[in-house]
Each structure stands twice: as structure tokens, then as C-alpha cells.
Amino acid sequence: MSPVLQVNNLRKSFGGIHAVNGVSFEVNDGEILGIIGPNGSGKSTLFNCVLGQLHPSEGEVRVDGQVTTGMRPCDINRLGVSRTFQLLQVFPQLSVRDNLILAGQEHQGTMFTRLIGRSDAGLGPAADQMIEFFRLSHLKDQMAGMLSYGQQKLLDAAMAFMAGPRLVLLDEPAGGVNLTMLGHLRERLQAYHAERKATFVVIEHQMEFVMALCTRVLVLAEGKLIANGAPEEIRRDPVVIEAYLGHGMNAA
């Protein structure tokens, strides 16, 4: 069986700067892969290239063996790759429930059937389930913009799961979230992973979160992959410590 995601020699430069400079890795079915690295090491650019928001300068991306480089984000998403964003990306003027239905509605039928069909595109029950799962039931008819920051983060993650994706890319899910909410989020992600056997790739600064959640960790620095291994190995790797301290950041 081929890996869920293959990234081969990916490069992306802006002007003269190589944000991602020849990165290759694979993600296997059912894995939770963490990607860490100092600010500006190319993590988000990597995600943007995988989901088609940016076109890589060189190299290719495969999802389930199929080359997706050059495809539009909406088409890649419909292949079963979804993501969350570093900055909040919910639709503030839609209700929590509508946010979730939206996240699923484009994965079924055609433009025409969506126009003449039911208002909730038949996704009402699935959305309610997802709301239940992330324990947002008391907020389901609220406008998403009125939720707290942490609640919006949960909703953001729930939206990424709504269409039952094969692969979920989570861009700093813990960023700016308080400790209680963080524990809740991690626990929900783990529960989802256990229940649906989904594959995750997580970018995160919050080291404890990564170590607790991920089965394997990649380290990026200056657009290059500098380490790849189990969380415990990575924590002790001198190269990694050097990369972080070299940028004046604290690894722990």
C-alpha cells in the first residue's frame, strides 16, 4: 500500500528566498506526524504547497499515489485532504452548524443538485454529530464570530473533519489556546483518530502538545528537513536543539 502523502524534493522560493528547500517525506496511513521548527522554517509554506494554495517551484506532492501538484485547493480537498489554518478561519457570519454543513456540502452531488436539494444538503445530522463530538452543542445556532477564540479553534478543527477526510493537516491547532481548552482539543483529536483511523499532520510550536499527540516528528529549519524520528529521539537530538537555540528559541 502506498503512503497517504508523499512529498518529493519540494522547493518553494519567494524572490530569492527558499522558504522550502528540497523537502521529501512520507506520511503513512493512520500516522500522526508532527512537524516542528523555528519561525520562518517553512512549515506553513509546506502546508500551502500540499493543499495547492501555493504552487511549488519544484518537486511534487502525491496523495494516495496520485500527483496533486498543480491542482486547485478545492479539488485536492475533494480527494480527501483537509486543513486548518494558523490564523482563525471560520465563517463568522454563519452559525456553527452552517459552518459545518458548508464544510461537507461540496463533497456530494453537483452544483445543480445542491441548488434544488435540501437546505442542509442532508448533512444536518452529520453536523449535529460533529458538534456533539467537539462538545459545542450549546453553541450550535450561535454565529461563529461570537464564539471565544478557543471555541473557534475547535470549530475550525471540526470543519476539517466534517467531510471524513483521508488526511488532515493541522496548522498550529494549539496556538493561542488556553491550557484547559488545549487538553480538550488534544483529547478530541486523539479520540477522532482512534475512532476513524484518520491520518494527521500537525504543525505546532507547543512542544508538549506535539510530544503527547504525535507518533513521529519531523524537524524543519531554514526550509530543510534536519531530523525525523520518534518524539523522544527528537527531544534529545543535538542538531534539533542547536537549530532552536541558534534562533534564540526555547525548545521546551
Binding site: 478545492c74 483537509s82 478561519q89 471560520v90 461540496e106 463533497h107 452544483m111
Partner: peptide, 10 residues
């Protein structure tokens, strides 16, 4: 941008 990442053919 978010809509596009959720499969909407914007």
C-alpha cells in the same frame, strides 16, 4: 481562501 480549502469551487 478557507472556502477553497473546504472544497468550494470558488
Amino acid at each position: 481562501v478557507r472556502a477553497l480549502s473546504l472544497g468550494l469551487d470558488t
